[in-house]
Design a protein around this nucleic acid. Sequence first.
DNA 1: GTGACAAATTGACAAAAATCAATTCTCTGC
DNA 2: GCAGAGAATTGATTTTTGTCAATTTGTCAC
Lengths: 232, 232
Amino acid sequence: MSDSEFSEVRRLDLFAGMDDAHFRALMRGAYVQSFPPQIELIAEGEHSDFLHVVMAGAVDLFTSWNGRDTSMATVRPISTFILAATVRDAPYLMSARTMEKSRIALIPSADVRAVFDADGNFARAIVAELATCYRSVVKSQKELKLRNSRERVANFLLRQQRRAGGKPVFDMDLEKRRLASVLGMTPENLSRAIKGLRGHGVVVDGTRVTVTDQNAIECFAKPNPLIDDLAT
Amino acid sequence: MSDSEFSEVRRLDLFAGMDDAHFRALMRGAYVQSFPPQIELIAEGEHSDFLHVVMAGAVDLFTSWNGRDTSMATVRPISTFILAATVRDAPYLMSARTMEKSRIALIPSADVRAVFDADGNFARAIVAELATCYRSVVKSQKELKLRNSRERVANFLLRQQRRAGGKPVFDMDLEKRRLASVLGMTPENLSRAIKGLRGHGVVVDGTRVTVTDQNAIECFAKPNPLIDDLAT
DNA sequence: GTGACAAATTGACAAAAATCAATTCTCTGC
DNA sequence: GCAGAGAATTGATTTTTGTCAATTTGTCAC
């Protein structure tokens, strides 16, 4: 692991507050590896031997059942995934694959659990992280159950706009077929939903989104902080 | 709080391992209250002042948006809810109401956070509980995205059967309109789905479920531990 | 640039699910 | 036991979503 990577990991909320000796103990067993695109990093059902940290690139968390599959989330730098499986010492509920060339740090789960017992700050950070993850799945579940597909698309675009700085023109940083899967619909339906939003002040051309009438789209989407705010 | 209630709370996974002095400190500020059915205990968006523990009865966690609403989960004794909001000191994402006459213990959130800092065992228990909650929402989200309504009903019945001891005849302990909402469908559709399962070895009469062909229903439902196991 | 391949779009259609209206059933309180 | 209210069911219909097939668009290696 390079020095700059080392300190990048160190700065993560999860590790920032912990004792330096403990952090170094964690990193001793860790290693960083580069993966090409479309590599399956973990498969659901496997036992969780490592906590993963995405240093660069992007990772898709997905799951399948009975021949169908669906994207649950995208993990972008710098953040961790499968923390819950690690602390519970339980099998992964989701599979993970690189979406692009990615650099991943792997920290042995056993070390995470050991240091957790020794370092109160780390324990607190884990609690905060888990609670945040939990709340984020709850929000996404609320969206799935309360909104139809067009509403989900509209609100996704508004969230994306905010992430991109709030300007009326911005980029979807996501392949459409994956977005469709994340939003729980087919790519065909996503196409139609996007077309349907033209009447509500949004035009999408390829990956470029233009909000022609901010008021109209917000009026249609009715974004709600208890669903759409990423932070709280 | 009565002595028996006190020790019931004490025995919860969340509190079982913690120091006795800390537990008593937590309980000092806590109080227990009885509520009639259909009382709204908390409303989404409110700030989380108390960790709630259901001692008796049942509580429905639900959420609404734009005039629609949906049940997210049912909390039965003895367990806590809204732990994530408490530890994050953040607003509730869901509302809660009693489904029947219920007895609820209320523990000030500030006390929970304070004792968390002082008691390593309690911190560990909170992490375990949060990770479990997180994984349970992930499972439920997987079910929503990967299964159609009839499959969701079939798997729900199998889960319920297991909870009830695995015998071929058992009770759904849930009102059908609420079950429909939990499973993300309308009551009308639930009715039809149940009728459709008659061809797959299950008959439902009122609240009584009879599995006439265990093999057939399992073959149709294809239950999966990574979705349907409550524990892992 | 060109060809090859994957992604995105479009239209026609099918399936799933929601809605609406009308009963029927099941409690509960009297 | 009976009335009334809410829950559950049923049928008819509409809306939403998914599926399939064909076409267009975009991207990347060469």
